[in-house]
């Protein structure tokens, strides 16, 4: 199989796939070198990127490649598909909770509650139902509490390729008035 044949095959397969395709799996199925397939996907996605007349783009999502509509067409696509505009976005508590799970995983309910200061049972249930978090095991402490972690769907939902795409928590500057917070820090840690 030469390169253009491989690109054609991968493109056709992407067209009919309903979830991200992992190059490693495809390489195995086709009996090809993984690097070769990986490269083919990269050049295929670049080809699409350069095609002005195409409304399709290929994205790296949740560890694989997936075809999707071009972002700037979203409003028209939603209209043509008769989809509701904003549905089922996560609530603020849900986003806060999934953020804590993403950074502290594997993490127990009690640990999440210690950070957020509120009960998270209900939110965790919603997040599990939406497959954004899942049980990953039990913590070997008394009571053996359930440990939670994020899922491949979590990555897909937020447009990430891997969990390592998250910025390091230390790099995130605390929200709000930085002056007030630095004042508070000064007062507690360093002053006196």
């Amino acid at each position: 199989m030469d390169e253009s044949e491989l690109l054609a095959l991968l493109e056709a397969h992407l067209l009919v796939s309903t979830e991200p395709v992992r190059p490693a799996d495809i390489a195995k199925l086709l009996g090809l070198e993984r690097d070769l397939v990986e490269l083919a996907y990269a050049s295929l996605s670049e080809l699409y990127e350069r095609r002005d007349t195409s409304g399709i783009r290929i994205f790296r999502l949740s560890g694989g490649y997936q075809m999707a509509t071009r972002p700037d067409l979203s409003l028209e696509i939603a209209r043509l598909l008769a989809l509701p505009k904003e549905t089922n976005r996560l609530s603020k508590p849900a986003l806060e909770t999934v953020a804590v799970v993403a950074y502290r995983q594997p993490v127990t309910t009690a640990e999440i509650e210690a950070i957020r200061g509120v009960a998270v049972d209900g939110v965790l249930k919603t997040l599990s139902e939406r497959r954004l978090v899942q049980e990953t095991g039990r913590k070997p402490v008394p009571g053996r509490p359930i440990l939670y972690g994020t899922t491949p769907e979590f990555l897909h939902y937020f447009g990430l390729n891997a969990i390592t795409d998250l910025p390091s928590l230390e790099d995130i500057s605390p929200e709000g008035d930085p002056e007030a917070m630095s004042k508070a820090l000064e007062a507690v840690g360093l002053e006196e």
């Binding site: 783009r57 696509i77 598909l81 939902y157 995130i172 605390p174 929200e175």
Partner: peptide, 20 residues
Amino acid sequence: RYKAFVQTLSDWEGDRRQLY
């Protein structure tokens, strides 16, 4: 920090929803 990150997550959520 988590609260600040929630804004980022929410933006990502919105961006991802531009894709069909």
